[in-house]
C-alpha cells in the first residue's frame, strides 16, 4: 500500500480533453497576431545592419551577425510552425518548436522587446506540448490533466504576481484607482476614447481597480474549485475584453483567452459542449465528426 501514490493516481485521473482543440486553434490565431507582423521590422529592428543592440537578457548579437536573410528565415520558420500547429496531429510538437525557434530568434536579435504576450504564448505552448492536443477527435477523449495543471500554474503566476505587486507596492490600486487612470492616458498603451473619459472619473476608475485586484488575487484559489471555476474565468473574460477595449496591449488579451477553454473545469466544459453538441450535429455535421469522431 502506498497512499502518496494513490493520491497521485487520483490527481492524475484522466479528464475530458475537448477543450484542447479550441485552445490550440485560438493559440494559433493569437500567435499569428504576434508573429506574422514582425516581417515589417526586418531590416529595421530584426536583422538590422546598423542598429544592433545587446541587452542584459538577450546576447545573441554578441555571437552572430543576424542579417535580414537570417531574419526572413526565422520569420518563415515561425510562420511554418504556426501552420503545423494549426494542422495538428503529429506535426503539432514540431510546429511548436519551429514557432518557438523562429519567433524567439527574432525577439533575441532585437534584444529589448520580449513582450508579455510573447512570454505567455511560450508558456501556453509548453502546456500544449504536455497535453493531448495533438490527437484528433478530442471530444470523446479523456486524457492526462498534466497540460491543464501546467496551464493553471502559469496563469496563477501571471494573475497572482501582478495582483501581489499591486497590493504590496502601489497603494492607489486599493484607493482612488489613479494608477489605472494614468495607464488609460498613456501615449503608448492608452488614449482609447472610452479610456480617456474613464480616466477622469475616479468613481469608476476606483471600482475598476478594485475589480482587477480582487480578480487577480482570488484567481489562484478559485480556479481549482469546480463551483467557482467558471465564475473566476467569466471575471477573467470581462477583464481581458475590458483591456482590449480600453488599452492597446497588442494581442495579449487574445493570447490569454486562448487558454480559457482548458482552464475551464473539464466536466463543466464537457457539459457546456453537450448543450451545443446536438445543434452542431444537425447544422455542421462535418465539424462535429472532426471534433467528436461520431
Amino acid at each position: 500500500m502506498s497512499p502518496p501514490r494513490d493520491s497521485l493516481e487520483a490527481w492524475f485521473e484522466p479528464t475530458w480533453a475537448g477543450g484542447w482543440t479550441l485552445c490550440r486553434l485560438l493559440w494559433v490565431l493569437a500567435a499569428g497576431m504576434a508573429h506574422l507582423p514582425r516581417h515589417k521590422g526586418i531590416g529595421d529592428v530584426y536583422g538590422s545592419a546598423d542598429a544592433i543592440l545587446i541587452s542584459h537578457t538577450f546576447r545573441l548579437n554578441e555571437w552572430m551577425l543576424v542579417t535580414p536573410t537570417h531574419a526572413w528565415a526565422a520569420w518563415l520558420l515561425g510562420s511554418a510552425g504556426l501552420f503545423a500547429v494549426a494542422y495538428g496531429g503529429r506535426l503539432l510538437p514540431l510546429g511548436l518548436f519551429a514557432w518557438a525557434g523562429g519567433s524567439w530568434f527574432l525577439i533575441a536579435s532585437e534584444a529589448y522587446n520580449a513582450k508579455a504576450y510573447d512570454r505567455l504564448l511560450t508558456w501556453i505552448a509548453l502546456a500544449i506540448l504536455f497535453s493531448p492536443a495533438w490527437r484528433r477527435q478530442l471530444g470523446r477523449t479523456w486524457a492526462s490533466p498534466l497540460g491543464r495543471y501546467l496551464m493553471i500554474v502559469v496563469f496563477i503566476a501571471i494573475y497572482g504576481s501582478t495582483g501581489m505587486f499591486k497590493l504590496l507596492f502601489e497603494p492607489s490600486w486599493t484607493g482612488d484607482g489613479s494608477a489605472l487612470a494614468y495607464n488609460f492616458v498613456s501615449l503608448q498603451f492608452g488614449m482609447r476614447p472610452v479610456a480617456v473619459v474613464l480616466s477622469g472619473l475616479p468613481w469608476i476608475a476606483g471600482p475598476m481597480s478594485w475589480f482587477t485586484l480582487i480578480f487577480e488575487l482570488l484567481f489562484p484559489f478559485l480556479i481549482w474549485l469546480r463551483r467557482t471555476n467558471p465564475w473566476i474565468l467569466l471575471a477573467g473574460i470581462l477583464f481581458h475584453l475590458g483591456l482590449l477595449v480600453l488599452m492597446d496591449v497588442g494581442p495579449f488579451g487574445f493570447v490569454a483567452l486562448s487558454a480559457y477553454p482548458v482552464l475551464l473545469h473539464p466536466e463543466t466544459a464537457r457539459e457546456l459542449w453537450g448543450t451545443i453538441e446536438d445543434s452542431l450535429r444537425s447544422r455542421a455535421p462535418a465539424l462535429s465528426r472532426w471534433f467528436l469522431g461520431s
Binding site: 494608477a179 489605472l180 498603451f189
Partner: peptide
Amino acid sequence: GWLVIGAWSMFTAKDARH
C-alpha cells in the same frame, strides 16, 4: 536574465509622466 520570461508586473506601478 534567465528569470525574465517568468516575471509578470504589467501596469502595476503608477506612472503619471509621459
